[in-house]
Design a protein around this nucleic acid. Structure first.
Length: 631
RNA sequence: GGCUCCGUAGUUCAAUGGAUAGAACAAAAGUUUCCUAAACUUUAGAUGCAGGUUCGAUUCCUGCCGGAGCUACCA
């Protein structure tokens, strides 16, 4: 309808306004709740053009439109706002149309675009945490939304299975894992710990031990009057040690301790062991490779279980152990082409100072790859694998904004046209009440734990309501999962992805109010309702104001799906659905559907309810959330 | 220090430059002979500060105050 009015005004601009107008001047918005109207045109933009008051402009346009369009019942002008009331017939046919549409909300024609969505880029040295959950749910949902908008979508994952951090877990396991009487080290199987958690335990152990070693080393330097250090470091260390001994507050003391240890950590035996292992790994040392394969295998077993519970999947996997080699080749080529340059120590850099950025390391002096090396390789590999690819969407936290700015720039400098089609879907961090999560220090909300917890909560509150008489045990279990995970997903997706969000593990995830279960409950109730009536033939339909309001909301759904796609924002879908459900709940409370005596009105309410249910299910599907028929 | 992002009810979140800044939770008070009360209805409560642009600013610009991130031969 908006489009119809827009076209009408544009093509009759001379008749109505006496001159041509620009499309941007025609601005619609939703009519305020307390004002009669279904559609509001903002008339301020015409004031200057027509040299008249906003009221007069509104009158003029209103009169013209009413004359032209039979759908317009009446209109009113309040200040700069032309409020248009559409007649009931328009809304009845709107309802009938969307009722017939099984794919309501989705694009009617393919966009012709192929989009790759990367979400989840786990390191294989520790289990997933709450931050990954936001990342994974966000990326999965964006993939669904892009599909709904007609894209062909490839869901992918980049598995960071190599690098110094992996070597740290490996070194720690070699050095600290308990050995049984047969001489075998502890494994996930022997310890009963899930594989990813098992490896993560050793990564944390590495950090703990290396910190202690670092401190000890620095202390020994102190004994020897910092013989091993230059003056600047010596001075700093002296100051830190003095502060350490003076400080009484344990927390601050720990902080200083870490700082001292950090300064010396690079020189410890453990760090050296990890670095040596990385070099051996890149040289494909058989022993190191075996260890690496074994430990990564443990982690994948764990990840698979987690992904399965999350209900997400991938079409194609990329491993950095493969793509870093491509990256290294490209670095060579880039050196030839003088996109990169080599420093005296052998390290390779990209000079981005002309672009207002700094120099960026792309290969270490010892020849090993850094993150950037493999990210270059991965991108190239992807466009090789999928020649029809139009764009890659990287779902990665905003702490890496700079990294992606640099990556895309380097790809462009290397001459890849598609670099401009790469988009960093940058989402805000999940904060705990006392700040950021630090996985290195083990200060995280674990993904498996939080999933389990929220399902437990869903189980408890569902049992409490007791709506499940006659339901099989298996179905109940599935329902608890659906509600728990639905609550968790909705919680993480309802917030604008770009914004940082807070999560308090002590306050459990809310299941009342603006939540997943609130929406799931509305769906269950609607199913229960429509199951009570025969729906084969829709007879005559009549609507009143309350029905009209909800039809209006339903009619906005396709626009919301489109906007969610354009903005990569599942939050828009979540908020829309919440508003829809709130309206419907109010309606449901006040008016009876199956006891309505006016047949035409009853028909309308049944069809309306059914389609609210349809849109709820469709919208939640786009968020990766399932909805139950009973709860 | 440089660059970037963020400051909205007690708390967690909304608001393409548009009308009287919306919800939820927490607080207070109600609604079950009736389609699932995980619901519904009331009440109270907010744009960090100071300027500027605009018919109109939570939104855009400048400064200040407060918080975060990046600025690693970490990932």
């Amino acid at each position: 309808m908006e489009e119809k009015i827009k076209q009408l005004l544009l093509s009759n601009a001379n008749a109505v306004f006496g001159k041509e107008i620009a499309e941007e001047q025609i601005q619609f918005q939703k009519t305020r709740k307390d004002v009669a109207g279904d559609l509001t045109l903002v008339t301020f933009p015409f004031v200057k053009l027509l040299k008249t008051s906003p009221e007069k402009a509104g009158e003029k346009i209103g009169a013209f439109l009413k004359e032209q369009l039979h759908e317009i019942e009446e209109y009113s002008v309040i200040k700069g706002f032309l409020n248009i009331v559409l007649n009931d017939q328009f809304w009845v046919s709107t309802l009938q149309d969307l009722h017939k549409d099984d794919d309501y909300g989705k694009a009617k024609t393919p966009s012709g675009k192929t989009s790759m969505v990367e979400y989840s880029s786990p390191n294989t040295n520790k289990p997933l945490h709450l931050g990954h959950l936001r990342n994974i749910f966000l990326g999965y949902s964006v993939a669904q939304i892009l599909k709904a908008n007609g894209d062909a979508v490839v869901k992918t994952q980049i598995i960071n299975d190599r690098g110094i951090h992996i070597c740290k877990s490996m070194v720690a396991w070699q050095q600290f894992a308990p050995v049984d009487d047969k001489g075998n080290r502890e494994t996930p199987k022997s310890s009963g710990i899930k594989g990813d958690h098992f490896v993560g335990k050793y990564y944390i152990e590495f950090d703990k031990q290396v910190t202690r070693q670092g401190f000890d080393l620095a202390s020994s330097w102190k004994e020897d009057d910092y013989l091993a250090c230059n003056d600047e470091i010596k001075e700093k260390l002296e100051g830190l040690f003095a502060a350490y001994e003076r400080e009484e507050d344990t927390k601050k003391r720990t902080k200083i301790y870490r700082k001292i240890a950090g300064m010396a950590t690079d020189q410890t035996d453990m760090t050296r062991a990890a670095k040596e292992m990385l070099i051996k790994w890149e040289a494909r040392d058989p022993e190191v490779y075996l260890l690496w394969n074994t430990m990564n295998g443990w982690v994948y077993e764990g990840f698979d279980k987690s992904y399965d519970r999350m209900g997400v999947d991938f079409d194609k996997l990329y491993y950095e152990s493969d793509t870093f080699l491509i990256g290294k080749d490209i670095i060579d080529e880039g050196l030839q082409k003088e996109v990169f340059f080599k420093k005296g120590d052998g390290s390779v850099w990209a000079d981005l100072t002309d672009e207002g950025l700094d120099e960026k390391l792309v290969l270490r002096a010892d020849g090993t790859a850094v993150y950037m090396t493999q990210d270059i390789g991965t991108a190239i590999d992807r466009f090789k694998d999928f020649p029809s690819l139009d764009r890659i969407i990287y779902t990665v936290g905003n702490e890496q904004d700079y990294h992606f700015q640099v990556l895309f720039l380097i790809l462009k400098k290397l001459g890849y046209d598609w670099a401009k089609q790469c988009y960093h879907l940058s989402y805000g961090m999940v904060d705990l009440p006392d700040g950021k999560m630090k996985s290195r220090e083990g200060r995280v909300v674990d993904a498996d734990d939080i999933m389990e917890e929220v399902v437990q909560m869903a189980t408890a509150s569902t049992k409490e309501r007791g709506h499940l008489d006659g339901m099989a045990e298996k179905d109940r279990k599935d329902l608890y999962e659906m509600i728990g995970l639905g609550g968790l997903k909705y919680f993480l997706l309802k917030v604008d992805p770009k914004k940082r969000m807070k999560f308090d593990p002590n306050e459990s995830i809310e299941l009342n109010g603006n939540t997943g279960p609130f929406i799931q409950y509305a769906h269950a109730r609607i199913q229960s309702l429509v199951n009570k009536v025969a729906l084969d033939e829709v007879g005559e339909i009549k609507i009143n104001a309350p029905e009209k309001e909800i039809i209006k909301q339903l009619s906005e759904y396709p626009t919301v799906v489109k906007e969610a796609g354009e903005n990569y924002s599942p939050a828009l879908i979540a908020n829309y659905t919440y508003e829809l459900v709130k309206s419907f709940n109010g309606f449901y409370q006040q008016y009876s559907v199956i006891n309505e005596t006016d047949e035409a009105l009853k028909n309308a309410r049944i069809v309306l309810s059914q389609n609210v249910g349809k849109v709820i299910a469709s919208a939640m599907k786009l968020l990766g959330i399932d909805v139950p028929n009973r709860m």
